[in-house]
């Protein structure tokens, strides 16, 4: 199989997802995250919302590109959604009841 490995290096390299772009995005978002609490000291609500949104974006990119959900069979994405459903049920009740 080794001849295949070297046959089209350029072609296979192009087939990979844009890992480095995602990496750059993740780093940039992390920098923003760390800066937010220093800058938005006055409004905790806005800061918290912003931070949550940024985290969700980061998580989506990790799951879709690094964990290949974007390119994989749909059933894996379905499996990955199971804890989200459970988590929303649990937090809905916990927050309502605390």
């Amino acid at each position: 199989m080794s001849h295949q490995d070297h046959a089209h290096p350029a072609a296979t390299a192009h087939a990979h997802p844009p890992y480095l772009k995602v990496f750059a995005l993740l780093v940039a978002l992390t920098v923003v995250e760390v800066v937010v609490p220093f800058v938005l000291t006055g409004s905790r609500g806005i800061a918290a919302t912003l931070l949550i949104v940024i985290s969700v974006v980061k998580i989506l990119f990790i799951a879709r590109y690094f964990m290949h959900l974007k390119f994989d069979a749909k059933i894996l994405g379905l499996v990955a959604c199971a804890p989200l459903v459970c988590a929303s049920i649990l937090s809905f009740v916990l927050l309502w009841d605390h």
Binding site: S2, Q4, D5, H6, P9, T12, A13, H16, P17, Y19, L20, V22, F23, L26, V27, T30, I62, Y65, F66
Partner: peptide, 17 residues
């Protein structure tokens, strides 16, 4: 995060032989 990107790079390297 760096270690996460090196992990996918490792996979990509293997896939490229």
């Amino acid at each position: 995060i760096c270690s996460s990107v090196t992990m996918v790079k490792a996979l990509a390297a293997l896939q490229d032989g």
